[in-house]
Amino acid sequence: MTIPAGLKYTKEHEWVRIDGDTATFGITDHAQEALGDIVFVELPEVGRVLTAGEAYAVVESVKAVSDVYAPVGGEVIEVNDLLDGEPENVNSDAYGAGWIARVKITADDSVELMSDDEYNTFLEE
């Protein structure tokens, strides 16, 4: 299981890469392993304004349907349209081709975010 440094993580197993006022969201390698083969990703609409902790996407696998929650608040500026035809990218490259959405951070709110080391410790508990 991969836990890249330089990202932040949530207790709900989402990751966020913050670059200035832009954040890229996805689910962690741990989450995609637990879900199994992902068959569908319901993406948010561009322009939607999210608050931290709000469900913004749905990931459907052969095992379950799961909400995905925003780690930080902001306006959706881009979604990963490749997931419409290739949802398995979340399984094969959770931190790369499997990203779900990008937001322009517009709010000063976030859920409790963990570093890679903190997330690894959280998984071991």
Rank of each mutant, 00 (worst) to 15 (best):
M1S: 12
M1G: 13
T2F: 13
P4R: 11
A5P: 13
G6P: 00
K8L: 15
K8F: 14
Y9S: 14
K11S: 09
E14N: 05
W15N: 15
V16E: 09
V16D: 03
R17G: 12
R17T: 10
R17E: 15
I18G: 05
D19C: 03
G20L: 13
D21I: 11
A23D: 10
A23Q: 04
A23H: 11
T24C: 05
I27Y: 08
D29P: 02
H30Y: 15
A31Q: 09
A31N: 11
Q32K: 11
D37R: 06
D37E: 13
I38E: 08
I38G: 09
V41F: 02
E42L: 05
E42A: 12
L43V: 07
L43H: 04
E45V: 04
E45L: 10
V46S: 07
V46M: 03
G47W: 09
R48Y: 09
L50G: 08
A52Q: 01
G53D: 02
E54Y: 00
E54P: 00
E54W: 01
A55C: 00
A55S: 11
Y56A: 02
V58P: 05
V58R: 02
E60A: 08
E60Y: 07
V62D: 00
V62R: 10
K63E: 05
K63H: 04
A64N: 07
A64R: 08
V65C: 07
S66C: 10
S66W: 04
S66I: 00
D67G: 15
D67L: 09
Y69S: 04
A70P: 01
P71L: 02
P71H: 00
V72F: 01
V72C: 06
V72E: 02
G73V: 04
G74S: 08
E75H: 11
E75K: 12
E75T: 10
E75D: 08
E75I: 10
V76N: 03
V79C: 14
N80V: 10
N80R: 00
D81C: 06
L82H: 13
L83V: 12
L83I: 00
D84Y: 14
G85R: 01
E86I: 09
E86T: 15
P87H: 11
E88C: 15
N89D: 05
V90F: 01
V90G: 07
V90Q: 02
N91D: 11
N91W: 14
Y95N: 07
G96T: 12
W99S: 06
I100W: 05
I100Y: 02
R102M: 11
V103M: 04
T106F: 03
D109M: 00
V111Y: 00
V111W: 01
V111Q: 04
E112I: 03
E112A: 07
E112G: 01
L113Y: 12
M114K: 07
S115M: 11
D116Q: 05
D116W: 06
D117V: 11
D117Q: 13
N120D: 14
T121V: 14
F122Q: 03
L123K: 09
L123F: 09
E124Q: 15
E124H: 15
E125G: 15
E125I: 13
